[in-house]
């Protein structure tokens, strides 16, 4: 587990690649009870809502951002604040990468601020995020 004494500004989180399938999207939307048809009905998605393909849920990308943080923290981690914005849509099968880095350390408060990203294959940040975590000394 990272500690206040081992992290520095610029410390990077491990980058992880996420690729959705029809099954993973179906199970995610079932788990959060989201029946929005843009996540499973291709004809509706392209014909009615005019997306080029089935849409990857924004909050699923948010979850991947949170996982970049929780995996870095490990089993005893302490996440205090977490936020993200969905800037651009992503579609079924796209290869997306989640990662981030330490941007601020407050040794007095015992907290670290992380900047997070979801990037698409063109290296464009489609969902930026931020987290505040508490670390042991």
């Amino acid at each position: 587990m990272p500690t206040l004494s081992t992290v520095t500004v610029g410390t990077e989180l491990d980058e992880r690649t996420h690729e959705t399938s029809m099954v993973s999207l179906f199970l995610y939307n079932a788990a959060v009870w989201n029946p929005h048809r843009i996540h499973f009905d291709a004809e509706y998605t392209t014909q009615v809502e005019k997306h080029p393909n089935i849409v990857v849920d924004g909050p699923l990308q948010g979850d991947w951002l949170s996982q970049a943080v929780t995996e870095w923290l490990g089993e005893d981690g302490n996440l205090v604040e977490f936020e993200y914005s969905n800037r651009r849509a992503a579609y079924l099968g796209e290869r997306l990468r989640a990662g981030g880095e330490v941007i601020e350390i407050d040794r007095q408060a015992g907290t670290v601020t992380l900047q997070l990203y979801i990037k698409n294959a063109d290296d464009v940040v489609i969902a930026p995020g931020r987290a505040l975590v508490r670390l042991p000394g």
Partner: peptide, 30 residues
């Protein structure tokens, strides 16, 4: 069970989430 389903669907790696001992940060989204 609901935590475990969510953890599988989102491909969580931490054991506390996979076992359902604790909910991941975005579990309550909807």
């Amino acid at each position: 069970r609901d935590i475990m389903k969510y953890a599988i669907a989102t491909q969580q790696r931490l054991e506390k989430y996979r076992r359902g001992d604790e909910a991941p940060p975005m579990f309550l989204f909807n």
